[in-house]
């Protein structure tokens, strides 16, 4: 679905979200792939997340920024099922996934890359990639099936692209931080989910690598939906997408990066009072 108006301001969008209650109608709503409604996450009295409404459209690349402790990662946790929200609902692709387990959510096509790259240390690069191949979640097929030629080529293609081809049979624990970052991104790309949650993809990468990451993500945008969490403003500028600013768990501003940058509130939140 084509994005109609990129420069819509926050008030407009939020107003639009609100029209979508009652929640039954959301289940059949086709415009948004992901929709969060009245989500709060409370830890021991501390409100880490308090989002009234947030909708991600099909094939959108949404960047979420915000200062430390703004609740960016918690948002990802809630969507991917790692954290149960205290209140509210998560709708994805016509279904309520609020209380589903991590693996159920993953099987619905939500993939995730963590802030610290999570790869399986004792497996080689190739084996890590193999595990990310989609469609092999059943015990039986894993016990007797083997990787097909096509799949192998696809793996090698992606690894070639990110420059990990030389480390094909090296165990992941011997990879450098940057290489692990790449491997985590590669497995995410390979698993071909509908919605990608990418938590700080550029952390620990060089400028050139960051540029490549941005290029990859933009390529994915054509047939995937992405939520990218990032600190690095240059990187966000490269992506040139719709941005949601989180602060203290709540949405502070939404809009294109260049507009958001002008927002007084945002500047204040970033620079401190």
């Amino acid at each position: 679905m084509e994005r109609t108006d990129n420069s819509m301001d926050q008030a407009q969008r939020t107003a639009e979200y609100k029209e979508y209650s009652p929640r039954e109608s959301r289940l059949s709503e086709e415009r948004y792939l992901l929709f969060l409604e009245d989500i709060t996450a409370v830890f021991d009295g501390f409100k880490a997340l308090d989002v009234e409404a947030l909708g991600i459209e099909h094939n959108e690349l949404r960047v979420i920024i915000g200062p430390n402790g703004a609740g960016k990662t918690t948002l990802c946790d809630v969507v991917s099922g790692k954290t149960r929200p205290t209140t509210g609902y998560v709708f994805y692709d016509g279904a309520d996934i609020t209380n589903q387990t991590e693996e159920e959510i993953a099987l619905r096509g939500i993939g995730r890359k963590f802030q610290t790259p999570t790869v399986f240390d004792s497996l080689t690069t190739y084996e890590n990639m193999e595990l990310a191949l989609p469609g092999h979640y059943r015990l039986w097929s894993n016990l007797f099936g083997s990787t097909t030629k096509d799949q192998e080529e696809r793996i090698l293609e992606i690894l070639e692209r990110v420059g990990l081809i030389d480390e094909l049979h090296r165990e992941a624990k011997y990879l450098s931080h940057g290489q692990r970052q790449w491997l985590a991104i590669s497995t995410l790309i390979l698993s071909d989910p509908k919605l990608l949650l990418v938590d700080e993809p550029a952390a620990g990468l060089t400028d050139a690598e960051t540029a490549l990451t941005a290029e990859l993500l933009l390529e994915l945008k054509d047939d995937h939906t992405l939520i990218v969490i990032e600190h690095d403003m240059d990187f966000v500028r490269q992506l040139d997408s719709f941005v949601t600013v989180l602060n203290e768990g709540a949405i502070m501003a939404e809009g294109m990066m260049r507009d958001v940058q002008q927002n007084e509130e945002v500047i204040e939140a970033y620079l401190g009072r």
């Binding site: 693996e103 999570t118 497996l123 595990l131 989609p134 894993n142 016990l143």
Partner: peptide
């Protein structure tokens, strides 16, 4: 030697992550 073996090792290394890849670790 099968993929199950690799999944088992993945469980040993980092079970939560495996869950996010869509595998149900408890089956394995």
């Amino acid at each position: 030697k099968s993929r199950v073996g690799r999944i088992l090792i993945a469980i040993r290394d980092d079970e939560p992550t495996l869950r996010f890849s869509g595998y149900k670790p408890y089956i394995y």
